[in-house]
């Protein structure tokens, strides 16, 4: 039985006078709760990092395939000095493996959006020949320099989102997106806890120097430690990860 002394609310009738103060307090609390949670959550979002697009760049260089395509710049711009090594991708979640492989070892002209985060430089190629085409000139792939076997701590990301096409472009909420990118042949990168030979990130390949193996997808965006061979290609570090050594960190 309801308490006869308590006010009884009927939806289609005016609220009982005894209940009005309670209802006004409820309404104010409701609006305050929504405003306060919106402010608290909205103003405490993590920093998405400094990666960003730097506008269209057109350079000439030599293509090298290291699982994924890179070019060693032979004729740069103000933004991209000669001698730089750029990782290549296409638009969306598409890599440039198929486009670049036939031009391996050749001099090409590369044009597209430069994405930059720290020492990580990636170019999102324009469509068709405008993005990548054979060019005149001389150049050779620099001799790779092996740096030995290393154990690194850090996170596997897709090189394009991490470089700034998405902000944030890392972390577990972004894991599925990163998997889609790498499955689309966008080069993955390993973000190291501390710089390795001066670089915070390394382009990631499988142990044989090919594309990233399945274990890499399963470890994507987790903080892990992993061993592998590091090789310097131009000014780019490449980490041939040994997937059997992946350990998830606490």
């Amino acid at each position: 039985m309801s308490d006869p002394k308590k006010p009884f609310f009927v939806g289609y009738l005016p609220a009982p006078p005894d209940l009005r103060l309670f209802l006004i307090v409820s309404i104010v609390s409701f609006v305050v709760i929504f405003g306060a949670t919106g402010l608290l959550i909205g103003s405490t979002q993590d920093d998405p990092g400094p990666g960003a697009g730097q506008g269209r760049q057109t350079v000439t260089g030599v293509v090298e395939m290291i699982g994924y395509p890179v070019i060693h710049v032979t004729q740069g711009t103000d933004r991209i000095p000669t001698g730089r090594t750029l990782i290549l991708s296409s638009g969306g979640k598409n890599g440039a493996v198929g486009r670049a492989a036939p031009l391996e070892g050749q001099v090409v002209q590369v044009s597209g959006l430069l994405l930059e985060r720290g020492e990580l430089d990636m170019v999102q190629l324009r469509g068709g020949n405008n993005g990548l085409q054979a060019a005149d000139g001389n150049g050779a792939v620099p001799r790779p320099k092996p740096l030995g076997r290393w154990k690194l701590a850090g996170e596997i990301c897709d090189g394009k989102c991490y470089a700034g096409i998405m902000r944030p472009g890392r972390g577990l909420a972004h894991r599925a997106c990163a998997n889609l990118c790498v499955a689309g042949e966008i080069p993955p990168v390993f973000v190291s806890s501390q710089p390795v030979e001066g670089s915070d990130f390394l382009m990631l390949t499988g142990p044989d120097g090919g594309v990233m193996p399945q274990e890499g997808y399963d470890a994507m965006a987790e903080y892990i430690s992993v061993e592998g061979e590091i090789t310097r290609h131009g000014d780019l570090l490449v980490f041939a990860m040994d997937p059997t050594t992946i350990e998830v960190l606490p």
């Binding site: 030995g148 076997r149 690194l152």
Partner: peptide
């Protein structure tokens, strides 16, 4: 997880070894 900022890269073996 916490970002493993205190774990330094460790060189296990020199090239060729």
């Amino acid at each position: 997880q916490t970002w493993p900022a205190d774990i330094a890269p460790e060189r296990l073996s020199a090239p060729g070894e």
